[in-house]
Nucleic acid binder design. Sequence first.
DNA 1: AAGTAGTGTTAGGCGATGTTAACTATTTTA
DNA 2: TAAAATAGTTAACATCGCCTAACACTACTT
Lengths: 175, 175
Amino acid sequence: MSNDALEGLSASLEDYLEVIFHLEKSNRVARAKDIADQMNVQRASVTGALKALAGKGLINYSPYSFITLTPSGRVIAEDIIHRHETLKQFFIIALQLPPEEAEANACRMEHSINPNAVDRLVSLLEFMKICPRFGTDWFTAFARYCQKGSQTSDCEACVRDCLERIIACEKDDTH
Amino acid sequence: MSNDALEGLSASLEDYLEVIFHLEKSNRVARAKDIADQMNVQRASVTGALKALAGKGLINYSPYSFITLTPSGRVIAEDIIHRHETLKQFFIIALQLPPEEAEANACRMEHSINPNAVDRLVSLLEFMKICPRFGTDWFTAFARYCQKGSQTSDCEACVRDCLERIIACEKDDTH
DNA sequence: AAGTAGTGTTAGGCGATGTTAACTATTTTA
DNA sequence: TAAAATAGTTAACATCGCCTAACACTACTT
């Protein structure tokens, strides 16, 4: 295996790998035509990308063959998709962006975020689920803040509700 | 003015514009040599970029001259820097990444985030300042969660403290 | 003012990524 | 199975952004 496989992928090749992963999942194999359609490029451009990916040992490819991921290609593809999904969920859940916009941002930003930052985003999303300070009321308060640009909530009541929910929750646990 | 000015800038040209902005701020004008040093490219590469930016009406440039931003160049540069700073603050404050890592991520991601997402990040950072549910204890709880990967805080006590602080705060206001 | 050090530009090249047009291989279907 | 439709490849070319090497200009320095 050449060293190429170890070097970072370009944004473009990451996109190809991601698309191949999804096509393989839905169709068992990926075909150049479908890759071209999904990526909005010409078929000829796909051939070049496939050669590059095959050269890095990330896909099984020979001319006119079907395309599948190699084990290392799959690992990398899953990492890319993990970045993508993490960003997308962050945009949808934490920032409350419309799903299409979340998707578009994730799609572009997935190529430049580093592993640590992804881990932290994952932690934040998990933390927002388990920390009682977050909850429907937090999300609506933030949404309101985004719209009006000023805090309009009754903070004391909001936090009091939050506390009561925790206490109720703890009582539930003892049942 | 050609239409070029209206088209989006490449990540590379955005970087040049950003560097020119900072150099102009510290040195009154930017010089090709300094741009080259800051961008880690050769001087010859700068010339090409300057021609492109001048062609788009974003910088005042003629061969061998000093370089300054035009008004529209300044507007765009400030927008790029706004994206950069917003991302950086988000990484530092919300995700609690080390400043260098925050900077590096911001530097790369600033080119692909859209205006809406930037606005939401700004709102989130503001909201974290004014919403009483955030505060030192929230940040330390999240930091602990990032390290240990599990929730270890006493949620009831934490929120109770939060509530008490709000009440104390409100009493202060009446003074 | 002349020589020199430093700065800026030009010319030519390279790799990555895309295009179109023409050709080849494969698959469908009549 | 032969023809037609579809899919994939190749070749030639364009653009972008960088490079190196060589040359041109500017500005110190003395």
